[in-house]
């Protein structure tokens, strides 16, 4: 399922830029987009806002955004703002 999709690694130091790149990739994507969060330790409000937009865009295109390697602290942040249901998660 996800192996055919586009795969982007998010730089832990430049999370917002990485997510913006993902938005651009999503704009032209026809299948799932996998974002590798393995290098991300923490997210800030800007990153969170960008992720919300990303989720909205994916909903509009009916494609899935798959988050890989999300640490549990970030997962809890997404849970608190009710974003987990809008992404898929890969261990």
């Amino acid at each position: 399922m996800t192996s055919n999709g586009e795969w982007l690694e998010i730089d832990g130091e430049r999370v917002v830029q990485g997510l913006q790149a993902a938005r651009e990739a999503l704009a032209s994507a026809h299948s799932d987009v996998v974002l590798d969060f393995s290098a991300v330790r923490r997210i800030d409000p800007n990153a969170l806002r960008t992720m919300e937009k990303l989720a909205g865009l994916a909903d509009g295109k009916a494609v899935k955004v798959v988050l890989r390697g999300v640490n549990v602290d970030i997962y809890k942040v997404l849970k608190l703002v009710k974003l987990t249901s809008r992404f898929s998660f890969l261990a």
């Binding site: 409000p45 969170l48 602290d73 970030i74 809890k76 942040v77 608190l80 703002v81």
Partner: peptide, 10 residues
Amino acid sequence: ARTAAAIFTQ
């Protein structure tokens, strides 16, 4: 506020 509080948990 909700976003800030969520971010703050880290």
